[in-house]
Design a protein around this nucleic acid. Structure first.
Lengths: 144, 144
DNA sequence: AAGGTAAGCTACCAAAATGATAGGAATTTA
DNA sequence: TAAATTCCTATCATTTTGGTAGCTTACCTT
């Protein structure tokens, strides 16, 4: 079970937007350059973030993207689900009618536990937490 | 992030072996029929379990497969990793040298937390736990 | 009004992973 | 020796992933 680069890139991109929140829109090419991601690929990832409403766009010159809500208001679970889809999707978790077998239902409990463990982590953190850590890390670098 | 049918089928298969532990080998076709999985596909999944040492085979007539260790001795994490590969594999978790960017390192913490949350669940349960639940469920059905 | 700048949309594509299917070889029991 | 069973390898269709390309639309500046 590995993380797709969609999530890895997407998280880095939205974190750039979070760090820059309040300073006006950030352009794709800026993010792409900072994070070393293909311009056009990033465009598609950000389109996902926009479609889910996490991000808003401004077209034309001086345009770009910005968060629609303050970073402290965006849980990582929202970002994750936008990019990666439902966490540990097992059909029988949502549609138990697909689960006639007894043994299967036992494994189902395992997947349910896994799911809530993951969601626990992602629900407990916001973009602001990541911004803080980022700035803290940079400050430490200054001291050295 | 969805679970592959490899894991779903594989877990159900090894759980059959766990339930039957001590009663002699169980054949592929038996498991396949019970769990309604393609014979040939299941063969490959069990091959993975065998390759990892969780399961042993007996060839020829009256042959089949059995757990190499008692179910109480098999953590679900072992089964999962065998079938699904390393949990939440992000290269930079094992090889931090791939992680030059500062923002990336912050997201890295998120993946690390996710990983240990998942492992926490899978390390805390054994096949025996699932066997117990299965039998418990069956007993309840008898009462009705 | 015009030109340039950026987002938006859609199609396309290559490579890898997934979920199988198939057939024959090797081994063991009876 | 014959039958049963695992073992091994190849093949294959479909989906996902990761990415490229090109044209369209909106908007700001001059």
């Amino acid at each position: 079970m590995k993380l797709s680069s969609r999530s890895r890139y997407g998280f880095r991109a939205i974190l750039e937007l979070a760090v820059e929140y309040g300073n006006g829109p950030l352009q794709i090419k800026t993010i792409a350059k900072r994070e070393d991601i293909s311009n056009k690929y990033l465009e598609q990832l950000i389109a996902m973030l926009k479609a889910s409403g996490l991000v808003r766009s401004i077209r034309g010159p001086k345009g770009g993207y910005e968060l629609t809500r303050p970073p402290s208001d965006v849980k990582l679970s929202e970002v994750f689900i936008t990019l990666e889809g439902p966490v540990v999707a097992v059909e029988c978790l949502e549609h138990p009618e697909y689960c006639p077998r007894c043994t299967e239902c036992v494994t189902r409990d395992v997947w349910a536990k896994m799911q809530s463990a993951i969601m626990g982590v992602l629900e407990s953190m916001t973009l602001q937490n990541l911004v803080d850590k980022t700035k803290q890390g940079q400050a430490e670098n200054y001291q050295i």
